[in-house]
Amino acid sequence: MSRLNEANTLLAKEIIGRYPKARSATIPLLHLSQQQNGHITNDAIAHIAELVGATSAEVLGTCTFYEMFKMEPVGKYLVNICGTMSCQLLGADELMHHAEHSLGVKAGGTTADGMFTLEHAECQAACTEAPNMQVNYRHCHRMTTEKFDQLIDDLRAGRLDGDIPQHGTLARVRQVIPAEKAAGVALPDVPVEPAWMADGGKS
C-alpha cells in the first residue's frame, strides 16, 4: 500500500486547495507520503502526480532534488551528524567516528535491526551549539560521545517515543485553515486589486 491512503488523500486534497496552482503542493504531499510509508515509492510518485496534475517524471524530478526524500527504506531513526564548519571545528569528525563504531555501520548505512540510519549532514542552523546532530531532524546540541551513547540507549529503549516520532513524520502539528475564516487563494490569472488597496486604501 504505497499510494496515499483514504485519509491522507483527503488531507492531500485539502492541502492542494490552499495553493493557486496544485503543483505547488508537490513537496508537502511527498512529505505526507513519506510519513505514511517511511520512504517514497514509485506508486506514491504516480499518485501524487495524478493529484497535482503533473507527470510522474516531473514529480520524480522534484523528489530526487531534495535531500530529505528517501527512495529506499531507512531506519526508524535517521541519525544526521553535522560536518559543516563550526561543528567540524569542535569535534564533528570524532563524533562521526564514534557513531560509526558504536552503531557498527559506516555513514550512509542502516543497522541490521533497522533502527538507525547514519548520515553525514550539512549545516543544521545550530552553529553556536556545536557539535550538532539530528535524530529524525530533531536537534541535539553540544554533543559528546557519552551523550551520543545515552541518546542511542534511550531511543532503543523507547524512552524518547514521546519526543521523537519515527522517520517520515515531520511535524506533529498541522496547519488547519477553517473554511469559514479563509480569505481564499489568489489565482494568478484573476487580476483583482485587493479590497483594502482600492481608493488609495481609505477604509
Partner: peptide, 17 residues
C-alpha cells in the same frame, strides 16, 4: 473587522541549501 483579508499558508521545504 477591516477590509483587509489574507491567508498565510505554511509550506514545507525538503532539504536543499
Amino acid at each position: 473587522g477591516s477590509k483587509f483579508s489574507v491567508d498565510i499558508v505554511l509550506h514545507w521545504g525538503a532539504g536543499a541549501y
